[in-house]
């Protein structure tokens, strides 16, 4: 290739014309702008109590601020250990208290049911935590308890959960028919 007279050295080698460079810059800028649309962060509400209850039953509106929210969930995970839930329920597998990672709920598995269980206790040995933890903390723990049976999306879970967790949402998974060969090792539930 012949270069215009007077231009020497490596700088003149890449045959990029100015319009081409400008086009590239523009494309780059547009591409970076695209990134801005991904800046919608989850909300952390650090302060105060959960919003007031407006509907007595069925899906409580407070669900929305504690479910599928990784900050609330990971705070719940810490509190679960700090408040010694693990002392009776282990890391969800159960001990003196019932397992929390299976699909069986004695008192309901919705957020509001779990919060009620935590705050008011249950007759067969579940202590009452009202006044010992704040209402906000009870909601945070409930969010974590639901994640134990995989009822929260994978993307909100703590990156390094120190506990067991059911991989598939057992409450959502359809229970398969127990086939004869499965019977050899007992009912499906006892296998996992």
């Amino acid at each position: 290739m012949r270069l215009p007279k007077g231009r020497t050295g490596c700088l003149s080698h890449p045959p990029l014309s100015p319009p081409c460079i400008q086009g590239g810059r523009l494309a780059c800028a547009l591409f970076l702008c695209l990134g801005l649309t991904a800046c919608d962060r989850e909300q952390r509400s650090l302060n105060g109590q959960p919003k007031a209850e407006t509907i007595a039953l069925a899906n409580d509106p407070r669900d929305l601020s504690y479910q599928e929210n990784s900050y609330q969930l990971s705070q719940g995970q810490r509190l679960y250990k700090w408040m010694n839930c693990s002392g009776c329920h282990a890391n969800g597998g159960g001990g003196m208290g019932p397992p929390l990672m299976d699909d069986e709920w004695r008192y309901g598995g919705r957020m509001e049911d779990i919060v009620r269980t935590i705050l008011h206790g249950r007759p067969n040995g579940m202590p009452r935590f009202e006044g010992k933890i704040t209402e906000q903390e009870a909601w945070q723990i409930a969010s974590y308890v639901r994640s134990l049976s995989a009822q929260q999306g994978q993307d909100v879970l703590s990156a390094r959960p120190d506990s067991m967790s059911a991989s598939e949402p057992p409450t959502l998974a359809e229970r398969g028919k127990v086939l004869p060969e499965n019977n050899l090792t007992g009912p499906k539930d006892e296998q996992n």
Binding site: R44, L46, N47, G48, Q49, I133, T134, Q136, E137
Partner: peptide, 16 residues
């Protein structure tokens, strides 16, 4: 009165 107002995000909750 309000640990979350003084040091937002610390691990002592607002007790109220």
């Amino acid at each position: 009165a309000d640990p979350q107002g003084v040091k937002p995000g610390n691990n002592m909750p607002y007790v109220g």
